[in-house]
Design a protein around this nucleic acid. Structure first.
Length: 417
DNA sequence: TGACGTCAAGATCCG
DNA sequence: CGGATCTTGACGTCA
């Protein structure tokens, strides 16, 4: 079982994707953006490997306007070496990669232009995976598309469009249930007819359930049967409902206990789990650390990253975790993350926030110029007077961390939220 | 015509 | 001027 995250990572310096407005998308600019994004991809690969994350969705933004303005550019030739080495790095480590065109790639549209653009977009996604040297178990996940007043016809139009696609694209395609139109029963029916694998998304299913009464495990089992050996192990998408936001919105992070309960009722077959969550790699690492028995060193590394983020919410929880990690013969992963979750659910009190900011500032007290000291001090004063938010203070600390290349802080979670 | 979702670019505002 | 914050862009469908 692999657990992974989608597209971008938090607290991984130099891993961001760049894009531009279409009106600025000339060849030179695109080629340089692509170069930048491939560097970022390699940093993501390095990070994933270092942290034992072996499931990863590559951002569709890797090649900006990859199916339109950049479609004719010879990026695969220009960056052949880079693509090959990054691909080797990821695949050689056993990483399973994937891509997921957005909701605007609609293969089953009655509009021939829309269908054509969708096919071009799928072609672009397949070319990315091809150029990395990925085999057909590295998938492209799509949705069925629109209904246009007749679901049955919409499904059959999907089938005929699917059959017209290039084999290089078709062999990678996987169908996923969506949160509005096509539920998991629709997807299973269509995927079976097409001979393509199906992915079950638990939150989409909760928001847009199929008529039949079947529990999650039942659907997951049915989906698993659509995966051939050449497709690799079945995959599912897992996410949790955001408490604050509307139905179907992904949560900020994965709560560990509901996740572990979800795992309990999974069928025995090997399944890969793509998490869809705002804090991306952070939750992926949490789930991986909790399901795999690792060395306590893995938890200490994690704790180092969470430290000030927890301290900001609660000194009590901060100390509890320090105590917890003292016994080096234990591996108290779930306990640690439970305390972290509880700490992060505490309201942010100005006193604690100031305390944590002061701790982080101590990395710079001996280095920072007078001007920077004054700037930070005045921000702290403004914050304590309620004249600015904590984000302004953190942004200032982020600036300093970058200026003085303070890796410990740049790799920690405190500055990113 | 706006909402949907996503992210960063681009624009504008502020001190 | 730098930095913070708001708006736009790019995609297609549906209410």
């Amino acid at each position: 079982m692999k657990i992974g995250y989608a597209c971008l990572a938090l607290a991984v310096p130099g891993s961001g994707m760049k894009s531009c407005a279409l009106k600025n998308a000339d060849a030179d600019h695109l080629i340089s953006l692509i170069g930048h994004n491939l560097d970022s991809l390699e940093r993501l690969a390095d990070y994933n490997i270092k942290n034992g994350i072996s499931l990863f969705r590559i951002s569709s933004d890797l090649i900006p306007f990859g199916s339109s303005a950049a479609a004719q550019l010879p990026w695969a030739e220009i960056y052949a070496d880079k693509l090959k080495s990054t691909g080797n790095k990821m695949l050689g480590s056993g990483m399973r990669i994937s891509m997921h065109p957005g909701q605007y790639t609609v293969l089953n549209s009655p509009d021939a232009e829309v269908t054509l653009r969708a096919a071009q977009d799928l072609d672009y996604h397949a070319r990315v995976l091809d150029s990395l040297g990925a085999g057909e178990e590295h998938k492209i996940i799509i949705h069925l598309g629109g209904v246009y007043g007749d679901k049955k016809q919409a499904k059959s139009r999907f089938l005929s469009r699917y059959r017209e696609l290039e084999p290089s694209v078709r062999k990678r395609l996987v169908l996923e249930n969506d949160d509005k139109l096509f539920n998991i029963a629709d997807v299973l029916e269509t995927a079976s007819a097409a001979g393509m694998p199906a992915v079950f998304d638990n939150l989409h299913n909760a928001v847009n359930p199929a008529g039949e009464i079947t529990d999650e495990a039942g659907w997951i089992k049915l989906c698993a049967h659509t995966w051939k050996t050449s497709d690799g192990p079945p995959k599912i998408h897992y996410s949790q409902q955001s408490g604050e936001k509307k139905l179907g919105a992904h949560s900020e992070s994965i709560e560990i206990d509901p996740f572990l309960e979800f795992l309990q009722q999974l069928p025995g077959t090997d399944t890969d789990i793509m998490l869809e969550v705002k804090d991306k790699n952070i939750s992926a690492l949490k789930c991986i650390n909790c399901v795999s028995k690792r060395d306590i060193g893995a938890l200490e590394t994690e704790w180092a990253r969470y430290k000030y983020f927890v301290l900001e919410r609660s000194a009590k929880h901060y100390n509890a975790i320090r105590q917890l990690l003292k016994d080096k013969s234990e591996y108290p992963a779930v306990e640690m993350y439970r305390i972290i979750e509880e700490a992060l659910n505490q309201p942010l009190l100005p006193g604690s926030a100031l305390n944590a900011a002061e701790h982080v500032w101590s990395y710079f007290t001996n280095k920072a110029s007078e001007a920077r000291k004054n700037r930070f001090r005045s921000l702290l004063t403004k914050y304590s007077l309620g004249e600015t938010g904590i984000q302004a203070v953190k942004n200032n600390l982020m600036l300093l961390a970058e200026k003085y290349d303070e890796q410990y802080l740049l790799n920690g979670y405190y500055l990113y939220k």
